[in-house]
Amino acid sequence: MKILVALKQVPDTETKIKVAADGKSLDPADVKWITSPYDEYALEEAIRLKEGKGAEVVALSVGGDTAKDVLKNALALGADSAVLLKGDGQGDAFAVAQMIAAYAKDKGFDLILCGNKGLGGDNAAMGPMLAELLGIAQANVIVKLELGEGTFKAEREIEGGSEIVEGALPAVITAQKGLNEPRYASLKGIMAAKKKTIEELDAAAVTAGAQVSALALPPERPAGRLLQGDAAQQAQALLQALKDEAKVF
């Protein structure tokens, strides 16, 4: 069994967002880069499959030199090898899906795992686009995964509950919080990862479908009002304000 895990490097949640001089991208100064948390669930699932059934796990990322940190971490956690598709990382989900599809198409992967969305960009698009480009099955926002002989059974989150999706391998499965509890890298893993090399390839030339033309900070919310008095008075004042001023009711 051969598993590809696609990992994205993203700004940490706590990053203070500053717009770069071009008016359409994130100012990279002071940004702390992390592996997108949903991708960590994907990687953990791949490693558990490797431990349980035996599998070869290839970690992949698209980006520049800084994305190597994500791959080094994946190797330390248990990925067998790592591939960096070198690109500027600025493409849309469709561009990235095409780059990964061009890499993966002849490699015989049985399973491709990634996060259900990249933290921050929140497109939730790369996985299903990759599945379509490769002409294989998909199951998104997965909280439980079981593999059979050439088949999968996955539980996916939907409004007000979940549903069971069944399909044929190969497949793209996108992970959601709840799928597993990702481990931390062990010292042994970190030492072993130092001996492994990251394969660097030029990403395929592709055409994006969309681009960000402007990035702007949200308008400030108007200053709020504190309601005074005891609990009963505060409650009464709040409902009255919601009714008369906000016209919520």
């Binding site: 939730a124 698009a125 926002v141």
Partner: peptide
Amino acid sequence: AVGKDVLPRAAARLGAGYASD
């Protein structure tokens, strides 16, 4: 849940850009 699952796949099939949510 369905819209976010199907649109990006349909977009890729059409070679189309996609803006989510």
